[in-house]
Amino acid sequence: MTYLLTSLFLTVCLIFLPHFMSGPYYVHVFIITMMNIILTSSLRLISLSGQISLAHGGMMTIGAYTSALLVMRLGLSTWYAMLIAGLFVALVACLTGFPFMRLKGIYFSIVTVFFSEMVVLITQQWESLTGGSGGIYNIPAPGAIVVTGLFNIDFLSKIHFYYFALFLMIASLLILYAIEKSRIGFILKGIKQTDSLAESIGINTIGFKVLAYSTGCFFAGIVGAFYSHYISAMCPDTFGFFYTINILVYMTVGGIEVFAGPILGAFVLTILPEITRVLKEFMPFIFAAVLIAVIFFLPEGLAGLFSRLIAFIKKIIRIKNA
């Protein structure tokens, strides 16, 4: 219940927030933050099965190019193109997932890194389709949604993208939450704990891992597609190795154990560099300090810090009442 109320409250805040922002730059920061939240949370879905994927960057690249090219070459509506891009990425993840998921632990992570690197190389190489290393430009924004008399969303202003990103984020989080609370989430957590046992009692562990992988990558594809239409340009190495590493760090810093962890991590670590712009010079050290502090003192991440804080406050209240 607290969870529901908090989420509702935050949603309402996010709806009104743009009106209090001093400029388009902050709107942009929030759009990127919401993208990162989707990415981090979808990465956590994959990690529920115990596998750490580093293919998100590659999957986003595929999604971004698929959607942009569908619109620019085939003249498809942006809305369909983005959805198709997401589904295409899920298909790619499904096909590569079956061989990849046979590997465990670090081996799986390494293969996914190499997969991402191959995506970058292929997009650079396949110039006739992708425009090569230079990337593609003038990717059109999504088509306008006009309901006469009510509203007119034409995606000419950043605010419109803000609300689109907000919608995507809420929809994604709802779906991810539902999956986690469903029997699928339960089975994935079981697989993570003891996958040999899960397999021997009749659970198709590879199948479920691939399911988690495809679903997680679907969101990466959607976010990639969104990004290409939002920024209207895309390069093969926009979402390179470090982009994926960042997502992984958001997830770890936020805490992998609870659903809110990655959300918190992505939010704090995307916003933090922006609000401390006064201290920009020292940003690397602040970032380093946060990371080290989390690694050493918060094995459950920032989310763990929150639950500890709450426990601490409750304790104080109890002492006062006593």
């Binding site: 632990g105 590493i245 960042n246 760090v249 770890t252 690397p284 050290f285 970032f287 080290i292 094995p299």
Partner: peptide
Amino acid sequence: DPDRAMTVSISLILIIQNIVLF
């Protein structure tokens, strides 16, 4: 604890790289 050691290692990438960049 190889999982957390890997996290540490990943964080070190960002830390070292940012410091050199700075």
